[in-house]
Write a protein that binds this DNA or RNA. Structure first.
Length: 447
RNA sequence: GUGGUUGUAGCUCAGCUGGUUAGAGCGCCUGAUUGUGGUUCAGGAGGUCGUGGGUUCGAAACCCAUCUUCCACCCCA
């Protein structure tokens, strides 16, 4: 049998896991500093929790888990006879793999509302699954890293999350630009142009601006039933640079004005001069997801051509479908896979990442193995990370093992060393050899 | 979900219009060097040519199906 894994999934080598954990650890440290706590939710949710939350497209991409037991006996016979897969699904599958972390979190908040102190600040790093067609950087299984706060509509949290972005990327050594906009401002465009009923398609087209260019955006808008003159006006709107300029154009747009007010308050919390990265207002920023209702964010890395490496925003009513009304939330997520790629491209991972083993103990004879194990025990007791070669293989092979694993020191044990009690320590970089007894070796390696 | 693309040794890839024993580089193993790695030299192992059908005297090559890879849409991380 040829070994294989399912389409769109990946194995990770030790070096990749080390790098991933390097990123995770920095992110977690920042989250905890800002008072966010970790939670986890199950891999599987009830299908009814997930369906209908991501639009029709999202439902298609949900992985469904087949019921156990004699599932066909309980299947919808009409749907089965009619070969209607969509209709059949609900009778043979009651669970699905989580599609993102936000909807399970909304369910979690409602379910545990009596145990949670609001505002509740949580972070969550877990894999999610989507039955999309895989491509590079697009998998069936991938990690998401979300940080959210629910139970407060204070714009202080928008400012806090942007600070978190700033601090995380600074710690990772990445320079980024944080783009900020507000869905109410976008709605203001629709109000000003009399396009309130076309708001959704308008934002979807606008979101493609930097990808397809202004001419094609106008064509797309026309396809959605927005006439060319209004499309041109819309593109004219988004050329504004400041909130004051925009305010002047929003005479008949009460929601738009409310959005401007929110952005002003957000900026008053943030002291720009304290930010390491650029934070800029971008009226064309739209974000695809429609549950956002207030401020929205997107993060782009400077110096590389890569899509956004993070994003998020304010959502006013995500918990109401689970029966809890008037809970406002705001959150952002980190695009882990892309951050990984950008850091790889810019060579930002520390060089010694993953080289945790300090020393290898090599043996010249079978009789030396017992001494090797004993020495290893002593070194480990002293907190030195060491690896013991398990046989008296050819020295060439043992030293090669150390080279492959980038272990910087090898201690060599043979008959001479055993009788004298002086171990040979070899520096694998310089090739130098020195003699130590056990105590001296520990002292030398502890420096 | 739509249209395309890819699959040959552990890895990266050659392999002509179908023709006899399927190749290279790197890696791996062995030896030169029976107590010392990275260099060098010599030798060696390793392949159901993604899988299943078909066409043919003959298929890695042509046809069909299927899986996989990557790409453009859709959508998104």
């Amino acid at each position: 049998m040829k070994p294989s894994i399912p389409k769109g999934t990946r194995d990770f080598l030790p070096s990749e896991v080390y790098k991933r954990e390097y990123i995770f650890n920095i992110i977690k440290r920042v989250f905890q500093k800002y008072g966010y706590v970790p939670i986890e939710t199950p891999t599987m949710e009830n299908l009814e929790t997930l369906t209908g939350k991501y639009g029709e497209e999202g439902d298609r991409l949900l992985f469904k888990v087949l019921n156990n037991g004699d599932f066909l006996a309980k299947a919808d016979k009409d749907a089965l006879g009619a070969m209607d897969s969509k209709k059949l699904t609900s009778s043979i599958s009651k669970r699905g793999l989580r599609y993102d972390l936000t909807v399970p979190f909304a369910r979690y908040v409602v379910q545990h509302q009596n145990d949670l102190q609001l505002p509740f600040k949580r972070y969550q790093i877990q894999p999610v699954w989507r039955a999309d067609r895989p491509q590079r950087g697009r998998y069936h299984e991938f990690y998401q890293c979300d940080v959210d706060v629910v139970g407060s509509d204070s714009l202080m949290y928008e400012a806090e999350l942007v600070q978190i972005y700033d601090e995380v990327f600074r710690s990772l050594g990445l320079e980024v630009e944080v783009l900020v906009n507000n869905r109410k401002v976008l709605f203001g465009f629709a109000e000003a142009l009399g396009l309130e009923d076309k708001f959704m398609p308008m934002t979807i087209c606008l979101d493609k601006l930097d990808k397809i260019g202004p001419e094609k955006v106008i064509i797309e808008l026309e396809k959605s039933g927005i006439e060319k003159s209004k499309g041109e006006k819309l593109l004219d709107f988004i050329t504004v640079k400041t909130l004051d300029e925009l305010e002047a154009k929003f005479e008949n747009a009460p929601t738009g004005l409310a959005g401007i007010k929110e952005l002003r308050q957000f900026h008053s919390y943030l002291n720009q001069s304290q930010s390491h990265n650029t934070i800029s207002f971008d009226p064309s920023l739209a974000r695809g997801l429609n549950y956002y209702t207030g401020c929205i964010f997107e993060v782009k890395a400077k110096g590389v051509n890569m899509g956004s490496i993070g994003g998020g925003g304010r959502y006013d009513d995500l918990t109401s479908v689970f029966g809890l009304k008037d809970i406002s939330g705001v959150g952002v997520s980190f695009g882990f896979a892309r951050i990984f790629d950008v850091m790889e491209e810019l060579k930002l991972f520390p060089k010694d990442i993953g080289n945790k083993t300090q020393i290898l103990i090599a043996s010249f004879s079978e009789g030396a193995l017992i001494y090797s194990f004993e020495l290893g025990t002593e070194l480990r007791k002293a907190g030195i990370s060491c690896d013991i070669y398990p046989s008296a293989a050819k020295m060439k092979k043992q030293l090669n093992y150390a080279n492959k694993k980038a272990i910087p020191f090898v201690v060599i044990i043979g008959e001479d060393e055993i009788s004298s009690g002086q171990w040979q320590l070899k520096n694998m970089v310089s090739g130098e050899q020195m003699k130590f007894d056990t105590a001296g070796l520990i002292k030398y390696l502890s420096n």
